[in-house]
Design a protein around this nucleic acid. Sequence first.
DNA 1: TTCAAGACTGCAAACAGTTGCACTAAACCT
DNA 2: AGGTTTAGTGCAACTGTTTGCAGTCTTGAA
Lengths: 317, 317
Amino acid sequence: MTVTIRDVARASGVHVSTVSRTFSAPHMVNAATRNRVLSVAEELGYRPNRAARALTTGRTHNLGLIVADIANPFFPPLIKAAHAAARQRDYHLFVADTDEEPAVEEELIQAFSKQVDGVVLCSPRSSNKALERLAERVPCVVINRRLRGAATVLMDVGHGAKLAVEHLAGLGHRRVALVSGPAGSWTSAEIRTAAEQVPDIELVVIGPNAPTERGGFAAAPRVRDSGATGVLAYNDLVAIGLIEGLGDLGLSVPEDISVVGIDDIVPGRLNRPKLTTVAMPTAAAGRLAVDLLIQEVSATTSLETRLVIRDSTAAPR
Amino acid sequence: MTVTIRDVARASGVHVSTVSRTFSAPHMVNAATRNRVLSVAEELGYRPNRAARALTTGRTHNLGLIVADIANPFFPPLIKAAHAAARQRDYHLFVADTDEEPAVEEELIQAFSKQVDGVVLCSPRSSNKALERLAERVPCVVINRRLRGAATVLMDVGHGAKLAVEHLAGLGHRRVALVSGPAGSWTSAEIRTAAEQVPDIELVVIGPNAPTERGGFAAAPRVRDSGATGVLAYNDLVAIGLIEGLGDLGLSVPEDISVVGIDDIVPGRLNRPKLTTVAMPTAAAGRLAVDLLIQEVSATTSLETRLVIRDSTAAPR
DNA sequence: TTCAAGACTGCAAACAGTTGCACTAAACCT
DNA sequence: AGGTTTAGTGCAACTGTTTGCAGTCTTGAA
């Protein structure tokens, strides 16, 4: 029923190996035969079976992409870009969601290992040890984390955080609250150290907080009490929640207090006020990660972030 | 280097077929041997090679999921749910993005056909004819569209639209604007016919519009001029854009005008005012679609939608 | 005691391709 | 003209599993 390489060989009067070569090494076969084979194949609707090909070559032409939460607005642009890059090179992409569980993450990598030529791990939650062990079994590139023995794509949040705080300073703010993320988060630490380096700013750290809208909402009273006139939030979700919390407290943004987010997710763009934020190059990261994987280069890259100024920041009263 | 079934067979002193059976038909092998094989396999770190298995069985244990735009907030919850359902049954999920291009869609289905046991098509853009032809080559289930020869999962937007307009009627609105979607959209037509059935409401249709924030924004003046006090928008993005556009015109929501969206995407929940909207059961649809695919049942299901009342609707002045 | 029925297990042929090697014929050198 | 290269093709083994068939060994029944 399904048309195989043998059917094509028979119908075009050549050996299967010739058919095989017209697809995987066209230069090795005479132009005339090649065209004949190609047209017969076309006519019969033949498509090489990737599973069979994988069996002999060891290359599946599949890639895995593992993220913590597909529904988190931070990831979809990355997934989309990764998919586009993969498709461009005729690779297919498995996408998987770990639900933020390290155990699931490890199991997925393991499960993928035989079925893909490589996997990109996005902000992985597992331990270094576990990841390093798994990275030996299958080529990995890691986004947003440093890992020995795997190519790395970083987005320079630190620099972005610095820009954000400098932006606030430039508007005249002197006391800035940092609404931080979860304890032990690599990103959160990066943000903090960078923010601390901005001169003439008194930084007050509020946290740790859940990296969600609720987390931001809950932090509102402490932000108000801190006496800060500007805020840098761990991410846009936190910023949005915070703005709502401040609203409930009778404080409006940016009139009473300025808020900067991080990530530049869609809901932030749609929010009112539109969120000033640090744009993370998620699409570039996704694209680059799959390119690195396919080309088997082991590099560590740091992507630039930039500040997007919108409506949630203004000069203090 | 990679450990195969033969290694396990050799190490545990049985034939490869016995090893094979301990994994794919455990009841056929003696408990003692099974345990021995299992422990040897564990020790050696053996995992069956899916590609090889696919070759003989014809089943890949992979599924494809094709959506128009991964980055559109409507899809990620669906993708996530589909992934969870697949994983639960030990299937892996290819995810692909068509960029709204019918040609890409058809090519992807074609490319997947040999590599998956089935594909779920989410709001496909291709012609019926093309889809029907492709559905013959690979089992398909279609979400949000009727298609001969393929299982179908529908979300009952019509009913949701009716609920939305009834809600507005209940609040006292008499003249309601329907800010419709693109011309020729199946969904848009469904919404309209349902909305027209609500008694005591004068419905004015404004459109067609692009199904985006911009589309909603651009429709604002016409909505104002329509004299309607309530609006049902084609989707949440349109609603959000509309609210912003109305704001620029000096009209505030819900004080001056009530707005209901459709979809219940994250940005709507985060919007201010929080959007009253028709919740589409996207997660349920994703889950159900993969279940139907795996169980090879060919049914057409209609999922219930419900109205989520938040802050963008109120009684007219 | 003999026979049939089970329960396990081994054998070997698929599955759909790829690829090193051998072979043929033509083209190229001297 | 004879030898050597080269281009093109065929042969067959191999990839890792599954599975129908056949064989062996128990076990239970008559």
